[in-house]
């Protein structure tokens, strides 16, 4: 019985949101406001339940020794962050922001170098001829490698701005923009597929779970 009720609630909100496609209306506004309100409430609760309470309040209650007293630092930084609302001392919030930015940059730089840049550069050191199981297999693998190498080099040259893009540099950078456009096209195609999938998901819910027609 409970699940039937919630299925009807979900169906009502789905139809209310979809009704915007016809025109703006009170049902859409109602669903939109409920969504924004409940999401905001959820995030506030989530911050308290998963972050502030267990990490800070609970930490002060249950931890001992240095593990307990070190929590003063994040607590102090959190208070500094709130000084943004008090104009004469709002500059203090920059310390908390600087700490966050520094930590994120440290993690990001090492993570990106080790996990993205180096492996991705290594992955472009490819042979132009790959022996395969047959002529066409070898041809396919070799062309694939050539395209990856040429695409990478041409795209990098497109972002080289220290010289005017004329002559050989112009030709290479034009090839680069072609590769970029193909990548954008692929991304756009995938995005269309994703959005259609969401519509299919909702329609499947309405037909299968709500109306039991399929």
């Amino acid at each position: 019985m409970t699940s039937v009720f919630w299925t009807w609630v979900a169906a009502f909100f789905t139809l209310s949101i979809l009704s915007f496609l016809y025109k703006d209306n009170p049902f859409y506004k109602f669903a939109e406001h409920i969504y924004v309100g409940s999401s905001a409430a959820f995030y506030v609760l989530q911050l308290w339940v998963f972050d502030v309470y267990p990490k800070l309040v609970g930490g002060f209650q249950y931890k001992v020794g240095i593990e307990k007293w070190i929590l003063i630092i994040p607590a102090f930084l959190s208070v500094l962050m709130l000084t943004r609302f008090i104009k004469p001392i709002s500059w203090l919030s920059r310390w908390a922001i600087a700490f966050t930015v520094g930590m994120a940059a440290g993690l990001g730089v090492t993570g990106l170098l080790q996990g993205f840049l180096v492996p991705q550069v290594k992955a472009t050191f490819l042979p132009f001829y790959v022996p395969g199981t047959s002529f066409w297999n070898s041809f396919y693998l070799s062309v694939n490698n050539i395209l990856i190498v040429l695409g990478t080099v041409a795209t990098i040259f497109y972002f080289y701005f220290s010289r005017e893009h004329k002559g050989a540099l112009g030709t290479i950078s034009r090839a680069g923009i072609t590769f970029i456009m193909i990548a954008f096209g692929a991304s756009f195609g995938y995005t269309v597929m994703a959005r259609v999938s969401l519509l299919i998901g909702r329609m499947y819910f309405l037909i299968h779970d709500w109306l039991h027609l399929a």
Binding site: V196, L199, I200, M203, Y204, I207, H208, L213, A214
Partner: peptide
């Protein structure tokens, strides 16, 4: 688009 999505689901 809606007809294109619903019809195949309806007729499985």
């Amino acid at each position: 688009v809606a007809i294109g999505v619903i019809t195949p689901i309806l007729f499985k």
